[in-house]
Design a protein around this nucleic acid. Structure first.
Lengths: 208, 208
DNA sequence: GGCTCGGCTATACAGGCGTACAGTCGGCAA
DNA sequence: TTGCCGACTGTACGCCTGTATAGCCGAGCC
């Protein structure tokens, strides 16, 4: 099953790909039907003919990207340490798309987020038991940070001094991520201090 | 200097506040001049009279929020452990606004992001020396994750089972954050494995 | 009192948007 | 050959957007 990346694709597929690229880059709200049609090299009317409406096109893109991403991730799960985001251009574009969809409030992207939270929670509970008392909340934070880092791609890249999706930037990002994930940022006494502050807050909330 | 939260504010201030609220909630692109005017209880024309254009209004909001946020953060820096996001409603709204502005590509929000990276890098270098070889990249990732978590607010809240800006959700989030920041997610041997994978990648990049 | 002037409204305009629809073209069964 | 049907185009419509502008009203100065 080779990637469907031919130059001369079905017009329907070219529309879909153009929409995915533009939605990922600017968001669905800032992309017009005419933009997509132009990029796909067809007339605006054809979008409607094939997909019915812009919203329906968006849903078709959602379904397509999510499906392909699941396929790809399943394939990579076995030969990748898993914490380093991939650099394959297609995966990058799809990840960008999902991140955008998450921010735009797409239901299917939200469902995928929830899946990732569940998967992370299971993985952590199995591999690092005792890390937390509430695996699901922990996984929610972890997944949110992971996705959020992608959402902040532009600013993180600027701070890194290199686009985090180029090899150069990716290496810097990965190095920082390894440091980030392998050493605690809070020392035990600082953690205890914050914990007690939280307990006080919790007590106050229950008292009220 | 009490908070300017009177019911009967200057029309100009009411417009600004309405714009901040709507921009933070839906983003500037999805907010119309008429929406803002209605929420502020004035006519659309008055926006133009006071601010010149929608874009100029956005810049005025940017400047105002960033200025107030700096004031607030300076005041809180001394009586807050710093890692737990604040729950004060105004601060929450302003943080939401900045996060949106970051995603919308506001230059002043980007500048604030860069400042936060610098501040974090300094703080880490001073308080946890030896944590990383590249404090700036580390801080970039840290700041990106922190902001990104806010950007993913909707989904994180759903996974937590409570809006992370309500006391209930905030407590869960804070508990997970403490676990997250006080225990390494990567065990030393796993970290070494990922590190060697990264070194191989780096070598290949330099060889090419 | 008369006048100016800034805050404010109402209305109008041009442009871009998603959508609708009538029509053209080419391949393929009968 | 004839007829049909789906892919595809071009144009037009109605709506909503940001912007422009003419005018109203009340407070403050001469």
């Amino acid at each position: 099953m080779p990637e469907p990346e031919f130059e001369d694709l079905t017009a329907r597929a070219r529309i879909r790909d153009a929409a995915i690229a533009l939605f990922a880059e600017r968001g669905a709200g800032a992309t017009t039907v005419r933009d997509i049609a132009e990029q796909a090299g067809v007339s605006p009317g054809l979008l409607r003919h094939h997909f019915g409406s812009k919203e329906a096109l968006r849903e078709a893109c959602d379904a397509y990207v999510l499906d392909r991403l699941v396929q790809i991730k399943e394939k990579m799960l076995f030969d990748n340490p898993g914490f380093l985001p991939a650099v394959h251009p297609t995966v990058v574009r799809y990840n960008k798309y999902v991140t955008r969809a998450l921010l735009d409030g797409s239901p299917s992207a939200a469902a995928m987020f929830d899946d990732m939270v569940r998967l992370s929670a299971d993985w952590i509970e199995q591999h690092i038991p005792g890390l937390t008392k509430d695996y699901h909340s922990y996984a929610a934070v972890f997944t949110g940070m992971q996705s959020g880092l992608l959402a902040m791609h532009e600013h993180v890249s600027r701070a890194l001094g290199a686009d985090m999706f180029t090899p150069e930037g990716h290496v810097r990002l990965a190095a920082a991520l390894i440091d980030f994930y392998s050493h605690p940022l809070l020392t035990p006494d600082l953690a205890a201090k914050v914990q007690s502050a939280l307990d006080a807050l919790r007590a106050k909330a229950e008292g009220a």
